[in-house]
Amino acid sequence: MSNLWFLYLFFSALLIFTGIYCLLTMRNLIKLFIAVEVISKGVSLAIIATGAVKHSILLAQTLAITYIVVEVSLVATALALIINIYKKNKSLDIRLLSKLKG
């Protein structure tokens, strides 16, 4: 049964890798946020798969639903930020935003 767990974790790791790659290389703010969404899909897949394999699917479902609620709240905040940034700069390019240096 735990073979299945690793199968699902394999796919969730792929999703998270894809998201992080995009986050590191892309420049469009909305693209960056799509990357965040992809990462969170990987995480919720991992949660549900863990619950299903370990016979605690009810608990896992509550966790996944809570996670989705958090995600919605985050998406709303981030999109509000993006729209505000666009209003200020008339652009979605992250390179134009590099007044601050790390």
């Binding site: 703010l29 981030a78 930020l81 993006i82 505000n84 940034i85 200020k88 700069n89 935003l97 007044k99 601050l100």
Partner: peptide
């Protein structure tokens, strides 16, 4: 301000 928004993002 744009600086604040960028830092927050």
């Amino acid at each position: 301000g744009s600086e604040e928004l960028e830092a927050s993002f």
